[in-house]
Design a binder for these strands. Structure first.
Lengths: 116, 116
DNA sequence: TTTGATAGTTTCTTAAAGGAAACCGGTTTC
DNA sequence: GAAACCGGTTTCCTTTAAGAAACTATCAAA
């Protein structure tokens, strides 16, 4: 294979597509904070609002919907006096751990590298 | 530690920041295709334009500048008849491999999961 | 019956990302 | 001298992401 050839562009673009899928799922300002917060256990809507500094209700609800759609988060309505809603990471949601950890450690050493 | 507490919010937000740094570096529609294409070897500007389907000169040049700024890509001007410019991944650029591979494999199985 | 809590939605506005097309400066071949 | 090649930049426009603030529906306690 010559360096300047496109090597198997079909497999290659499937590769890029898979990466983009993953990026899209984690995209936006709030997905990581939300997943990070939920990784410590289930939380109600208002608790999330309070835990994630700066997030607005609109954003939280929108991002949670996307995460739920992708099967990463489970939403449970509880039959309490004022209705409460609990959000938690699914098993599948937890499967993002390795990726997130890799990104965190790369990001950390990158910051150090940039500083000096 | 109670499940509903914020556990060490300082370390936690440093963690999120590191993840965001990594995401930002890979963000945008073209970073992954560019890195992917360069991972097979150095390429000239026009070759990149031709290899990366759909990219416009403006975007390519902008994204390459960012990648260079972050030390992931090296730009070399060659003293040829019409000046040509070669772009290549640095060692540092190659250090993204593990992350990119993890994202690719997670993305692949996610796509399969969504299909069924 | 008014107030407060919960879990959102709606509306309006601004900021950032991205694309299409034209342009530019240097060089070289016809 | 005209046209072409290379590596961009500029301008203009559209789309998308995000934030702030107000609003809604349901229930329960005071």
């Amino acid at each position: 294979m010559n360096e300047n050839d496109k090597p198997d562009s079909a497999a290659c673009s499937a590769h890029h597509m898979a990466i983009r899928d993953t990026m899209d799922i984690l995209a936006g300002k709030w997905k990581i904070p939300i997943i990070g917060t939920l990784s410590f256990g289930k939380k109600r809507f208002m608790v999330l609002i309070a835990s994630i500094k700066g997030i607005a209700a609109k954003m939280l609800s929108k991002e949670l919907q996307e995460l739920e759609l992708n099967g990463l988060v489970r939403r449970t309505v509880l039959d309490t006096k004022p209705v409460t809603v609990e959000y938690e990471l699914t098993e599948y949601g937890h499967s993002l751990r390795p990726i997130i950890n890799e990104m965190a450690s790369w990001g950390k050493q990158h910051r150090e590298r940039i500083m000096k």
